[in-house]
Design a protein around this nucleic acid. Structure first.
Lengths: 167, 167
DNA sequence: CTTGGAATGTCAACAAGGCTGACGTATCTT
DNA sequence: AAGATACGTCAGCCTTGTTGACATTCCAAG
């Protein structure tokens, strides 16, 4: 198991435990970088990474319901509610009662919310852009392929549902 | 800025805000998958992700000092200490006073610690392996390139220091 | 030999952000 | 009319991060 090369020769050397370990460590260190810039911005405020995630996906899917957001974020409603409550209280997010189904709340960013979302996503995108530029288009395609193959089935569905929707 | 294509034509289409956003969401969903399997194992025990990280890097660098581990993990010593204390108390990690410098504590996994570390890393490696296999060697090379370009400078140094050391 | 600084550990207090369980209310669906 | 669904909320717990303060132990420089 530690040496797949035995089964297929040179072609499978990228599946050695050693290569896999490097990938694991790369994910660990890269994810730290990935969140570092927004975290720095949020550190000066009363918000955290959970608020960033909520803002991101509300921005992505304006009018989304609480339940929908719940399944995308993969947290409990109590946990999300704590975050949403503060965002709504501070006027970053608007919650509107549904027209067809009045039980639902549809979530939108206010101007103030959009401003913060923009600041956070600009910071994160800047890092992503410079990584993309350094690695080049072929590497980027591979990057996306591996990440998509790494997702759980359910998360993959959430991701695909968002993937090709225009902003 | 939203349309780098204006500056260089087709060649830079992979740097559009849209592509960058997809990369950001891919990182988010993939990281959840990345940690899901070890988290499931740890969920049944009294340990969490922080314990996993400590076990991983002690396994990688047997005899490492607390200070060294601190800089790799990027947390405060108080936070790490709480984790280490429970791992040591439960007999998963051995802490030995340094021979040259007796202030230092050198950390090693015990047999029991190695067993757990193996179980966790097997689970994580299995997912990584199947993602690698699905994506293929070229994609994997790109994956690593982009991740490495995404790291902070300091993290990149930590990563490189580990990268080519034999297990 | 004394003293300053480095490495480590520990105590206390706190916050973010996960979780479960239970309950209430409004609204749809059957 | 009854049951299911969507949402909010209260209470309490856990992990894991933070700061600040302080003790110990040891190395090394004066």
């Amino acid at each position: 198991m530690a040496e797949p090369a035995a089964t297929g020769g040179q072609a499978l050397l990228f599946l050695t435990d050693e290569q896999l370990r490097k990938g694991i460590e790369a994910m660990f260190f890269a994810y730290r970088g990935f969140t570092a810039d927004p975290d720095r911005i949020l550190g000066d405020m009363e918000y955290g990474r959970a608020h960033h995630r909520a803002l991101h996906f509300i921005h992505r899917s304006p009018g989304t319901t609480v339940n929908n957001l719940l399944s995308i974020l993969g947290v409990t409603k109590q946990s999300l509610n704590r975050v949403l409550r503060s965002l709504i209280a501070d006027g970053l997010v608007a919650s509107r009662v549904g027209r067809q189904d009045k039980r639902e709340r549809h979530l939108h960013l206010t101007d103030k919310g959009s401003t913060l979302e923009r600041a956070l996503s600009d910071a994160q995108r800047d890092r992503m852009r410079s990584a993309y530029r350094a690695a080049g288009p072929v590497a980027v395609a591979g990057f996306r392929q591996v990440l998509e193959a790494m997702m759980d089935h359910d998360m993959r569905r959430q991701y695909d549902a968002l993937k090709d929707r225009p902003v």
